[in-house]
Amino acid sequence: MASVAVKARVTGRVQGVAFRTWARAEAMRHGLTGWVRNEPDGSVRALLMGPSASVADMVRRMGRGPGAASVKDVLTEKTDPDPEIRGFSIVG
């Protein structure tokens, strides 16, 4: 199965609602690698790497987020996979 990498920026009420912890758990459950972090502007940014169907599913899930979140938008852009990244972590 083809492996892809996507950078995602999630806007809305996504900080202070356990979005990063939820995203890490969801990504790990789906076998993805990458990271998630809060941005100074109140958004959440993530790097998602793995099988294309799993990455697409994770992007859809991020559009809903955890229960306390109120997601406005998820913007994505394809990027090159980083073979140095192992696992999925919360950074920053």
Rank of each mutant, 00 (worst) to 15 (best):
V6T: 09
A2L: 15
A68M: 14
K7V: 15
K72A: 14
V17T: 04
R13L: 13
H30Y: 10
R45G: 13
G50H: 08
V71N: 02
S70C: 09
S89Q: 13
A8Y: 05
G63I: 01
P81K: 07
A53F: 14
A46C: 05
T79I: 02
P51K: 06
V91M: 03
A25D: 13
G34S: 05
K72N: 11
A18P: 07
L32C: 10
S89V: 12
A46I: 02
S3F: 15
M58I: 00
L32Q: 00
S52C: 13
I85V: 03
H30L: 14
K7G: 07
V55R: 04
S43N: 02
E77H: 07
R64N: 14
D80V: 12
P66L: 08
R24M: 09
K7F: 14
E84D: 15
M62Y: 02
R9M: 05
G31M: 07
M58A: 09
N38D: 11
V14L: 04
A18G: 12
V36P: 00
R60S: 01
G92Q: 10
A23N: 05
V36W: 07
D73C: 07
S70K: 14
P83W: 01
R86W: 05
I85N: 00
R86I: 03
S43L: 05
I85H: 00
L47H: 11
G65W: 02
G63P: 03
V71I: 03
V36Y: 05
G63V: 00
R20K: 08
G65Q: 03
P51I: 08
A27P: 11
V44E: 05
F88K: 01
P66F: 00
S3G: 14
R24W: 04
R9S: 11
Q15S: 03
V91N: 03
L48S: 06
V10T: 03
M1S: 11
D73E: 13
G50M: 13
V91F: 08
H30C: 13
S89T: 14
L48A: 05
P40A: 04
E39C: 14
L47T: 06
V4N: 09
G16P: 10
T21C: 12
V4T: 15
A68C: 07
S54P: 12
G34V: 02
G31S: 06
R86V: 08
G42Y: 04
T76S: 10
H30N: 13
V55P: 09
N38P: 11
R37V: 07
P66M: 04
E84L: 15
I85T: 01
G50N: 03
R37K: 10
A69Y: 05
A5W: 12
